[in-house]
Each structure stands twice: as structure tokens, then as C-alpha cells.
């Protein structure tokens, strides 16, 4: 809670300290002084810095982010659909990436040390991990959109006037979803793979593995024992990773022109639409704090050795 408070305070002052004047884009030239004052009042830009700060923090407490300079609409109305759009690629992307990554990580971790599978797996995973997400996006676009021409790589498709849930439940939306989602999955696999592999490698020399082996069970089942115990750090890593990914998806959203919160943040910054930029950043920071909290709690649940007093 304190962390959220500090982050939003830093955020507020970051936006106010910069010399550029938001009223320049907000207020048309040649407007009378009274009209200008009235406008500033409406956007909460009057009074001293301190008054503005109090008003802003008061607004945050009741979930009011103010109005967007650009859209001339409440920030919530602007951001809410964007958040939903982002979750569409972030959540399935993260889960599938984790699932595939962990499975492959178990295979690589259980492979013979120094063998072809291990070395090849590590090398490929590291190279993909070293690939900036926008290059993954560009490569997918080049192959599936330009070369093969199978999938669209721009936007979310025409809604055809559908609103609400129906906006998302149509074929056009899904074929637009595939490429960005695939980019997020690929972006996510290597880190999961390498983490899982370290866990399995650490576990495979433990005594209990010898015990399971001595019972005469098959190699796969022994691997499963080591894998299950390596899942623990992976799961706790996932929650903070979710928040970081949603942040890291910004670039993927830009490549595919996916109208999510990250792309909106970039647009808001370039448009000097401070209320939207502030709110988008604030929401991302809150997500990270909550994710860390969730990770701590799950860890306590999963590992009985950890006790929270």
C-alpha cells in the first residue's frame, strides 16, 4: 500500500516537473483568458502544485483518474477496454508460455549433462531469450502475414458493430489474435524453460531422487518427481512475471497495432495526454505490487516450510 502511494506520488511529480505546458495542446490559440481559466479548472490544472497533488491523490482513492486531454472523456472509459484487450493476449500467452516452457525445461533438465539435448536446448533458449520482443513480432509478421499471407497482423479486426462480449467472440477477432498471442508465447517460453531446467538440475542430485530410483520406477516417473519439486519456484516467479510481461507486451502491441494499455501509454506520452499516461502507469505499478503479494501468499500455501507470522 505504501509502495503504491510512493509510486503514484513520484509519478505525479514526474509529470509536473517537466517544463512542457499541457495547456498548449489543450487550449486553442486565441482563446480569451476567462475561457482558458475555465478550461484549466475543468481539467484540474488550477491552484498550486500542492493543491493539485491533493486533488489528484484524493481522486485516486475513489478510483477517479480525471479526464483525458485527448479523448475528452473520463480516463476509465478510455483505459478499461484497452486493459481487456491486453489481457486477451497477456493471460493466455503467459499460461501457454509457462506450460510449454516448463515442459521443455523438464526435458532439457533431465537430459544427460553435457549432451546434445542439454546444450542445444540451452543455446536455443538463450538465443530466443536474447531476441527483443519486437523482433519476434517482426519475424512472425514477415513469415505468416507477408510471405505466407495466412494471418492478418494489424489491429483487432473490424467489430462489425458488435459490442460487449460479442466484440470478442467472433472469427475475425480470433484470427487477429493469433499472431500477437504467438509472439507473447514465444517471448515467454525461454525464461520458463531455463528456470525449470535449473530447478530440475538442482533437484536431480538430491537424496530423494536416489530413493525413488531405488524403488525401481521408470525414468519418466523419476523425472516427474524432480519436475514437481522444481515447479515451486516457477509458480512463485509467475505472478511477478505476469505483471512484468503485461508491461513488456507494450512493444508487441505496437508491432501488431493491438489497441492495448501499453500502446495507449505510448500514445498518451507522445500526445502529452498526462491523465491517461499517469493512470496507465499507475495501474501497471499496482498490478506488480498485487502480483508480488500473490506470489508471497502462494509460496506459503505451496511450501509448508514457509510460515508467515
Amino acid at each position: 500500500m505504501l509502495v503504491v502511494f510512493i509510486v503514484s506520488t513520484i509519478m505525479f511529480f514526474m509529470f509536473r516537473i517537466v517544463p512542457s505546458d499541457p495547456t498548449v495542446m489543450l487550449v486553442e490559440r486565441g482563446i480569451s483568458e476567462e475561457a482558458r481559466q475555465a478550461l484549466l479548472e475543468r481539467w484540474g490544472l488550477t491552484g498550486s502544485l500542492w493543491e493539485q497533488y491533493l486533488r489528484y491523490m484524493g481522486g485516486l482513492l475513489v478510483g477517479d483518474f480525471g479526464n483525458s486531454f485527448f479523448y475528452r472523456a473520463p480516463v476509465w472509459d478510455v483505459l478499461l477496454p484497452r486493459i481487456v484487450n491486453t489481457l486477451w493476449i497477456a493471460v493466455p500467452g503467459l499460461l501457454l508460455g509457462a506450460l510449454i516452457g516448463a515442459t521443455l525445461g523438464m526435458v532439457v533438465g533431465w537430459a544427460r549433462r553435457g549432451g546434445a539435448v542439454e546444450r542445444g536446448g540451452i543455446l536455443i533458449a538463450t538465443i530466443i531469450r536474447g531476441t527483443p520482443s519486437f523482433i519476434i513480432g517482426i519475424a512472425l509478421l514477415a513469415v505468416f502475414s507477408s510471405w505466407l499471407g495466412w494471418l492478418p497482423g494489424f489491429g483487432m479486426g473490424d467489430s462489425g458493430g458488435a459490442t460487449g462480449v460479442m466484440r470478442y467472440l467472433n472469427f475475425n477477432f480470433f484470427i487477429h489474435l493469433i499472431l500477437p498471442l504467438l509472439a507473447v508465447i514465444i517471448y515467454f517460453i525461454p525464461e520458463n524453460l531455463l528456470l525449470m531446467r535449473s530447478g530440475v538440475v538442482e533437484n536431480r542430485t538430491e537424496d530423494y531422487i536416489e530413493l525413488v530410483r531405488a524403488k525401481g520406477v521408470s525414468d519418466q516417473r523419476v523425472a516427474w518427481h524432480a519436475g514437481r519439486n522444481s515447479l515451486l519456484p516457477l509458480i512463485t516467479w509467475l505472478f511477478p512475471a505476469l505483471a512484468e510481461t503485461i508491461a513488456g507486451i507494450v512493444v508487441i502491441e505496437i508491432v501488431f497495432s493491438w489497441p492495448g494499455i501499453g500502446r495507449e501509454l505510448v500514445l498518451a506520452v507522445t500526445r502529452q495526454d498526462y491523465p491517461v499516461a499517469q493512470a496507465a502507469f499507475f495501474l501497471l505499478a499496482v498490478m506488480i505490487v498485487l502480483a508480488n503479494l500473490a506470489a508471497d501468499l502462494t509460496y506459503g500455501k505451496l511450501d509448508p516450510r514457509v510460515v508467515y507470522k
Binding site: 517537466v18 513488456g248 507494450v250 501509454l265 496507465a280 505499478a285
Partner: peptide, 20 residues
């Protein structure tokens, strides 16, 4: 450090570079 760790990296970079 805890406070610093809860700042989302790329969004912070975008906002900071956009403003500065």
C-alpha cells in the same frame, strides 16, 4: 529497493524518456 522494484520497467522508461 522494494519501492524501486515495483516500478514497471519499460512503461517507466517510456514515460521518463517521453517527458525528459
Amino acid at each position: 529497493t522494494d519501492v524501486a522494484l515495483s516500478i514497471p520497467t519499460l512503461p517507466f522508461a517510456i514515460v521518463a524518456v517521453g517527458l525528459l
